[in-house]
Amino acid sequence: MKNASSFCLLLVSLITPSLWPIIGHADGVFAFSPEQAIHVRTLAASCAACHGTQGNAMVKEGGNTSEENNPVLAGRTREDLLSKLLGFRDGTRKATIMHQHSRGLSLEEIDLLATHFSMQIRVIRPPLSPQKLEAEHG
């Protein structure tokens, strides 16, 4: 099972030009082409509904880490994110939702997302504070 994911990871690395400069350089410079940068910025922003702005999911005090607090993506390693996404995609990793989303993405998009979120700075923020509804609201 694990080998299948590793093989996929290697395969993505080889077929995706953006990865060529970083093979063997975990902390190297990640370069997106202008087209890739524009494509991944809206695609990655789409993940924010569950995983927070730039992958910084809200941390609710006392919330269940695996449920009420959704996984944080910002600042995780690219390898970790890639192996999880590829695992969801090929079914070797159990999921409730991510198997469905990951199968809608191309291998290049999975690579772009993993690289993008690995480059984001982790910021810890609590949920937004709600307010009392005012009588004047239409």
Partner: peptide
């Protein structure tokens, strides 16, 4: 969690 994240 979805609600808290999309609101923020």
């Amino acid at each position: 969690a979805w609600a808290n994240n999309i609101w923020a």
